[in-house]
Design a protein around this nucleic acid. Structure first.
Lengths: 182, 182
DNA sequence: GTATTTTGATCGATCGTTCGATAAATTTTA
DNA sequence: TAAAATTTATCGAACGATCGATCAAAATAC
């Protein structure tokens, strides 16, 4: 099953949702195409399960070492550092998530994921607002100003137009903090 | 030709790149499928030309009323206001651009567009750095912190989870300015 | 009446999916 | 524990449908 996922990730990042097919996945994974229907109901079912798997993996990495009792500022910094490491060390997964998020395919089939992939960060930010650390604005606005620059600069890193060095990452964490602090 | 484009935009926003086909486009536009090959070399050729058309339209709207002699701060604010209006009044175009940008299809076929869709903003930001208004950082970093939150909140607006009111837009312009000012 | 635009028919290729046949692993029986 | 029965995993072949693309003929415009 991991063979199927891996081949799918590769092909999607190479050619995109428009070019993928069961036979191409099977050929890439060196398996028979029919076996995919032993593990999954359909092509769509497989893609959706892959999306949720990658999303869960990302969340696990993002919140590593951060609990409800972690101080807001430390949690904020750790999550952004974790997310940077995710971009650095799981490029395929990161790129594919971005492709999924931009496509109506996921929008249509995954009603659950309202609030986007950064939804699990909301409680931390709401704590930050309560403690008077963050501006008293909509939570999704604060999360967006904190996280989206990392997403975009991650793409530019994979594009070769930005360096994701420790120094640059700390610089960005500071900028994000400045954008939303009171 | 506009019939073709319009049908393509609709179908792409409804079902995505994975589900589109020449015959579906023709059926939606109430034309024969063969005529698409009179105007375009191939399906890919058509999609690429549509992408460039939408990108140019977006740029025209974004820079409306802004020239090289516009003061940096006024230019900055006007561009973000223009972009907000673009999101508000060209939802289909905005959504499709995001889908294109996330897909390897455009990455592969449009080498020209390095720097992303916000490339034309770079000169303004470089002026801002020279004038000592902006932090002396990489231009793409400044542009990202200014614009990407608008992209994300635009998606949340279309999602029904954020209001793109004048007040909120001005609030965001202020936040973007705060993030990158010295 | 020539040039431009549009069509319907049609091509081979590929699509997602199903099927029956088995190989491999596990469980049940005696 | 050996044999039999069942379950799980994999395959290649094949299905009708649709794919992107072509082309000669028809329609339209000038």
């Amino acid at each position: 099953m991991n063979l199927i996922y891996q081949a799918t990730i590769e092909l999607l990042n190479e050619s995109g949702l428009s070019e993928i097919s069961i036979s191409k996945i099977a050929k890439r994974a060196n398996i028979s195409s029919s076996i995919i229907y032993f593990y999954f109901e359909s092509k769509e079912d497989m893609l959706i399960k892959l999306y949720f798997l990658l999303k869960d993996q990302m969340h696990q990495l993002m919140f590593h070492g951060v609990t409800e009792s972690t101080p807001v500022k430390a949690g904020f910094e750790n999550i952004l550092r974790n997310y940077s490491n995710y971009i650095l060390h799981h490029k395929d997964s990161f790129l594919l998530m971005e492709q999924f998020i931009g496509s109506p395919f996921i929008r249509k089939n995954c009603k659950d994921q309202n609030g986007g992939v950064f939804k699990p960060m909301y409680p931390l930010f709401e704590r930050g607002i309560k403690e008077g650390l963050f501006k008293d604005l909509e939570t999704n606005l604060l999360v967006t100003y904190s996280c989206m620059p990392f997403v975009e600069m991650g793409k530019e890193y994979l594009n070769g137009t930005y360096e994701f060095s420790s120094i640059n990452i700390e610089k960005m964490i500071q900028m994000s903090w400045d954008a939303i602090k009171v």
